[in-house]
Design a protein around this nucleic acid. Structure first.
Lengths: 156, 156
DNA sequence: TACAGAATTTGTAATCATTACAATTTTCGA
DNA sequence: TCGAAAATTGTAATGATTACAAATTCTGTA
């Protein structure tokens, strides 16, 4: 999926059809949510966000839909530790970075991590591989700054 | 941990002490198992393997021990999809490769993936990061060959 | 438009990994 | 040897995911 600021319903419908997925109300809702919320939400996040408006939606359908979307390579499934799957509508070549403090997941694109291009090549040229994932972990700048401020406070 | 063919009990004890972990019977058993079984076992694998001999061992202790070992960086915790943690006694810089067919996890070392050195450098030079993991997926050569043979059979 | 069959959705129950927790046991230093 | 601290244990709780069967919706055809 290519991202504009706000992805329209029509765009989502086209996208699903392009991946041979029949665009039901529920599938559209899930895909639209993912396309417009680039925070790598979990199934639960998605379910909780959509349920109030799409009251008919069941948790099972969210599972079904995301498996279907992942199978069709319309979304990317991430699983970095903590035994929960996160979903990403951006299927382009990029890495992920999870902050140990705030637990947010950030995207890291080729502009920042040029290595990604080489990893992609590696996958393309080695028949054993069909995909590669690069995950970073650490404390994100925001959390590092907060920590820094806390420390300073102590010494005033 | 540096691996010889078979890691001795004394070696395991030294290794634990070096990581400030008191070498109890249970911890020794878990660490020794991990050191001598380079198959990236899950908690359950370890528990099921050890329980018959160390009959006193509880599942909770295996969890406690592995968390402790991971915390002390004596082992590496892997979590590639399927929401189960796998453990690796080899804490050197290497990537992992999981076969979609047989689900085995293979090690990929720097000799094979020179990129690993660059990723390491990246982590060392970027304060946001403290670790990176590179995971590959695909069909392993053994499984690919099996598949090939099956196909041929069909046409005889 | 009506209908049958296929696809999709739903809700509930089951499964499985992990964690919480409190009681028991073991270890270690005084 | 004794008592506190550390480690272990078993059970119960949690939480994500899957299984499954019933209900609903959709699609193509007559």
């Amino acid at each position: 999926m290519i991202f504009s600021d706000k992805v329209s319903k029509t765009k989502v419908e086209e996208y699903l059809r392009a991946h041979n997925i029949r665009p039901s109300i529920q599938r559209m809702a899930v895909m639209e949510y993912l396309a417009n919320h680039r925070t790598h939400p979990s199934i639960n996040d998605i379910y909780r966000a959509l349920h109030p408006t799409v009251s008919t939606l069941s948790r099972t359908t969210v599972y079904n839909t995301l498996h279907l979307l992942a199978e069709a390579k319309a979304v990317k499934e991430l699983s970095m530790e903590d035994n929960v799957c996160y979903y990403d509508a951006d299927t382009s070549n990029h890495a992920h970075y999870k902050c140990r403090q705030c637990c947010k997941i950030y995207d890291l694109f080729e502009t920042e991590i040029p290595l990604l291009a080489e990893i992609k090549k590696l996958v393309e040229n080695d028949s054993r591989f069909d995909s590669a994932d690069l995950y970073f972990r650490g404390i994100c700048p925001k959390c590092a700054e907060k920590e820094e401020r806390k420390k300073k406070q102590k010494f005033i």
